[in-house]
Design a protein around this nucleic acid. Structure first.
Lengths: 249, 249
DNA sequence: AAAATTATTGCAAAATATTGCAAAACATTT
DNA sequence: AAATGTTTTGCAATATTTTGCAATAATTTT
């Protein structure tokens, strides 16, 4: 079994399961624990996954890239995308940043929608090439391989002169008390800047990100205009989120 | 067993299995390990597979290209890329814009090269995620779907503060008398701006672009520092290009 | 805090890669 | 057909990479 072969298999498993266990994989592929451990280190160096105690977890960009190729979209995310599309009207200007959810919201936009999309996510820009009536503005800056978006002073400066209608913000966690938070500091600053440049901030999240808490807080929950999930607004999981003036879809 | 025959078989096996093991193949085809090893090296030089420790794996972009029927130009471009890499030193800052040739020059850069690459081509930024030691700066602006690059005042402004070592300029045509030219006006302005931001401008072209003339002139031939093609510098086709102080590779 | 699991490190064995060289095969010219 | 030059091939010596192991450290769980 070639090393590169193992690498591919690990990444594939990561795509479907979102996480891998070191011991499991080593038994599955019938190689020593150490080899797999070193594989994981190498792959992390390439920014293709995130190493955690006991194994590794998927990187948003990777799942994006993989699902793009495979054309498989998670049905939960598709539901979120559908709801998001209802908030968009013709001729609006929309800011979108990184993350799998945003990628699908963009990719699945109606083909006849006329809009301008501003993004720091090159995958999204490329994908929107298939939408003839959507103008795309790509925000430049230092490209963060791990998150597959550009971040930095340049990105920020460009936003200063923009007044968008909507901002679809991708996040890693949200809770009613602690607001929205993510894993990267620079990115959290960027997101605050983006909020300032749009009238309404909309957050789409998959269930597993609800009621958990990541390191860097972006904003209070009440500062968000609208929260979209795959759940029914009356779902038990969402009960704390009501009553703060945020639309729940 | 002919060499070409072996090459075919290796590529076929690669197509079905996505990977080949050096030892296995050599036993299967009943030739020495060394011959297969050299086959793999040759095929890699043509950009038809990716050599790894112990064997080779299929080349993702190539299968992509092959399915589109574009496979032929590939080995020509690989040759240009190889020549281009010799001009690059560690720790340089390099501007690269759009075009297939530039894409391959970037993608095939040595994995251990330390450099900063500035580009308005998001495909290139994404591809360079696989190069851990290369920093990428993405230039923002209006995204031109047709050419898959960003162009505009913003892009231009960002370049004002940049002094790069090299600029790899993609073009549609070049001739000794009429210089370099392309098909899009906005892009031609952009390229002139990029030339100003780099010490040396390098042009890599496939044979079919030599001695033809496109609509929008970017610069005189003599303003280029170096011209790279797949031909030998002494080739008949290139005879007019000598004597203008431009390095021909 | 102890136990259990997982990580890290250094090391030696195994596998693979590289290089130079000479024989063999092939093609080309006399 | 002989002589010549080129390409291909296999071999051997050497270098590099990968691998598994064992001892030790760090982390998570109990």
């Amino acid at each position: 079994m070639l090393k590169e072969e193992r690498h591919q298999l690990i990444l594939e498993k990561l795509n479907t399961d979102k996480k891998v266990n070191l011991v499991d994989i080593s038994q599955l592929l019938n190689v020593s624990y150490d080899s797999i451990r070193r594989d994981i280190i190498e792959l992390e160096d390439k920014g293709l996954l995130k190493k955690v105690h006991g194994g590794a977890i998927a990187n948003s960009y990777l799942s994006m890239k993989a699902s793009k190729g495979l054309g498989i979209a998670n049905s939960e995310i598709m539901g979120i995308a559908k709801k998001a599309h209802k908030l968009i009207e013709n001729h609006q200007t929309i800011i979108m940043d990184g993350g799998t959810t945003n990628f699908y919201i963009a990719e699945q936009l109606p083909k006849n929608l006329e809009a301008t999309i501003i993004t720091n996510n090159p995958h999204l820009a490329i994908s929107l090439s298939e939408h003839p009536k959507i103008d795309v503005i790509l925000l430049g800056g230092t490209f963060y391989k791990r998150y597959q978006i550009s971040i930095g002073i340049e990105t920020s400066t460009a936003l200063e002169h923009i007044n968008a209608d909507l901002y679809f913000m991708g996040i890693n966690s949200i809770s009613a008390n602690n607001g929205a938070a993510i894993r990267n500091y620079e990115e959290s600053l960027m997101k605050r800047r983006m909020m300032q440049s749009a009238r309404r901030t909309i957050v789409g999240v998959v269930e597993e990100k609800i009621n958990i808490q990541e390191t860097y807080k972006v904003c209070e929950f009440s500062q968000i205009s609208c929260l979209i999930s795959s759940l029914s607004p009356s779902d038990e999981l969402l009960k704390d989120f009501h009553g703060q003036g945020v639309e729940i879809l």
